[in-house]
C-alpha cells in the first residue's frame, strides 16, 4: 500500500477489520437490504485526504452541552433514572485521543424520541431534548449527564424492540477514524434480541458496546454511573509517539 521510501511512522491507519464490523447487507435489519453496496469496496491506502481531519475547539461548547438533564429543561428535570456516562476515547494502540468531538443522542426514559418521524405511543418529555456533545480532555476522557433511555418498538419485524441505547458520533484526529456507533447498558436481555445489534458478527464485538455499571463512580442519592470507552482506529504514528497527540 505504500511506496518504499515512505516512513514507517507516516501516520497511516491500521486497516479496518471489516469482519469485526457489521457487514453492509444484514437482511434481518430490513432497511439495509436496499441500502447496502453490493460491489467490492475500493481498497485504498491512506492518503492525506483521509489522514487529516477537522478540529473542534472547546470554545464551541455551551456550559450545558454535556448535561441532557438540564440542557432542554424548562419546568423541571426530565423524568427517568439519572445517570452519568463517562469513559475515554482511545485508539487501537490504547493511546488516548484528546480533543475528540463526541456527540450523543437518545430517546427519553419512555423510549420516545423528539423527532417528527417518531410514532411510538410513549409520551414526549417536555423537559428532555435528547442530545448533547462534549470534547475529550488531554487524557481522552469525556463524561455527560443524562437520564437512562427506555427501550422502544420499531418497524422491522412485527414486534421488534430496540434495547435501551445511546447513539454516539465520534471524530478522532483523522477522517479515516470517523465513527458512529451505539452504547448499550449492562444486564439488558434485549441486547441479544435486536436485529441491529445482531448485525455485528461476534458476541465479543457486541460486548465492547455494552457500558459497565460503575457503582463506585455513582453519586449517592443522586446518579448512577456507566463506563463506556470508545476505540477509534490506530495508526503507526501513535505507536512510536512519546508526546501526546494534541496538536
Amino acid at each position: 500500500m505504500r511506496n518504499d521510501n515512505a516512513s514507517y511512522q507516516d501516520g497511516a491507519f491500521f486497516q479496518r477489520d471489516r469482519a469485526w464490523h457489521p457487514p453492509a447487507f444484514t437482511p434481518e435489519y430490513k432497511t439495509s437490504v436496499l441500502r447496502s453496496p453490493q460491489k467490492a469496496l475500493l481498497s485504498l491506502g491512506n492518503t492525506i485526504s483521509e489522514m487529516t481531519g477537522p478540529v473542534f475547539g472547546h470554545d464551541m461548547l455551551g456550559p450545558l452541552d454535556n448535561d441532557l438533564i438540564r440542557n432542554y429543561a424548562t419546568t423541571g428535570d426530565p423524568i427517568g433514572p439519572r445517570i452519568i456516562v463517562y469513559g475515554r476515547v482511545l485508539d487501537e494502540n490504547a493511546r488516548p485521543v484528546p480533543g475528540a468531538l463526541v456527540e450523543f443522542w437518545q430517546a427519553n426514559a419512555g423510549g420516545r424520541y423528539r423527532h417528527k418521524k417518531e410514532t411510538y405511543l410513549a409520551a414526549i418529555d417536555p423537559n428532555f431534548g435528547g442530545c448533547g456533545r462534549t470534547i475529550t480532555d488531554e487524557e481522552g476522557r469525556y463524561w455527560f449527564r443524562t437520564i437512562k433511555p427506555g427501550a422502544y418498538p420499531w418497524p422491522n419485524g412485527v414486534n421488534d424492540w430496540r434495547p435501551a441505547h445511546i447513539h454516539f458520533s465520534v471524530f478522532g484526529h483523522a477522517f479515516a477514524q470517523r465513527l458512529i456507533t451505539q452504547m448499550y447498558f449492562e444486564g439488558d436481555p434485549m441486547i441479544w434480541q435486536c436485529p441491529i445489534v445482531m448485525s455485528i458478527p461476534s458476541r465479543e464485538a457486541v460486548e465492547t458496546l455494552v457500558a459497565a455499571l460503575d457503582r463506585a463512580a455513582s453519586l449517592p442519592m443522586d446518579t448512577l454511573a456507566y463506563k463506556f470507552d470508545i476505540v477509534l482506529r490506530g495508526s503507526r504514528a501513535t505507536m512510536f509517539e512519546n508526546r501526546k497527540e494534541g496538536n
Binding site: 479496518r16 477489520d17 469485526w20 464490523h21 457489521p22 435489519y29 439495509s32 455551551g62 452541552d65 440542557n71 432542554y72 482511545l90 485508539d91 487501537e92 494502540n93 490504547a94 456527540e103 450523543f104 443522542w105 424520541y113 423528539r114 423527532h115 417528527k116 418521524k117 417518531e118 431534548g129 435528547g130 442530545c131 448533547g132 456533545r133 447513539h167 458520533s169 465513527l179 458512529i180 456507533t181 451505539q182 441491529i196 445489534v197 448485525s199 455485528i200 464485538a205 457486541v206 465492547t208 458496546l209 470508545i230 476505540v231 477509534l232 482506529r233 490506530g234
Partner: peptide, 29 residues
C-alpha cells in the same frame, strides 16, 4: 492492541444528535 468499536447505524433519528435545529429542536445549539 484494542479493537475498533464496531459501527452501528446512525438510525432514523440521527438529526437529533447532529442537526437538532434542522428538525425543530431549538435552544440547544
Amino acid at each position: 492492541r484494542l479493537k475498533e468499536s464496531p459501527s452501528q447505524t446512525a438510525g432514523p433519528y440521527v438529526h437529533i444528535g447532529t442537526n437538532p435545529n434542522f428538525i425543530g429542536i431549538h435552544g440547544l445549539y
